[in-house]
């Protein structure tokens, strides 16, 4: 496993804590154009993802990249997560991974 460049699990609210760092999050795609995707984070905040998204997007999309600001990410990796995804669970995971069980995550 490549641990040289860890990415932090974040939801919309946690993003601001990692501005400038590498993060990963899952968004529900709201709209997209050539250079960006607008999505809803698992805690219902709007997130702008810049970069070059894949040509077709499913409802849920995982992006890994650098947090630009408290609501935008410059994405390096785009992964379609399909149309059914348990956003609630993911959101809980983000909270746990940055809170109580932070020590378990790199």
């Amino acid at each position: 496993m490549d641990t040289s460049s860890p990415s932090v699990f974040v939801n919309g609210a946690l993003l601001r804590r990692f501005v400038g760092q590498k993060v990963r999050t899952v968004i529900q795609v709201m709209g997209s154009d050539m250079g960006s995707v607008v999505g809803k984070s698992t805690d219902d905040l709007q997130i702008f993802v810049r970069g070059s998204p894949p040509p077709s997007l499913t409802t849920y999309l995982e992006v890994i990249g650098i947090a630009d600001s408290e609501n935008s990410i410059r994405a390096e990796v785009w992964t379609n997560f399909g149309d059914s995804f348990d956003a609630l669970n993911y959101n809980e995971l983000c909270k746990l991974a940055n809170g109580e069980f932070k020590h378990l995550f790199i």
Partner: peptide, 13 residues
């Protein structure tokens, strides 16, 4: 069912 199993684990926690 990973989704529901996760939920139940979260609940247990």
């Amino acid at each position: 069912n990973y989704s529901s199993d996760t939920r139940s684990m979260l609940q247990a926690m």
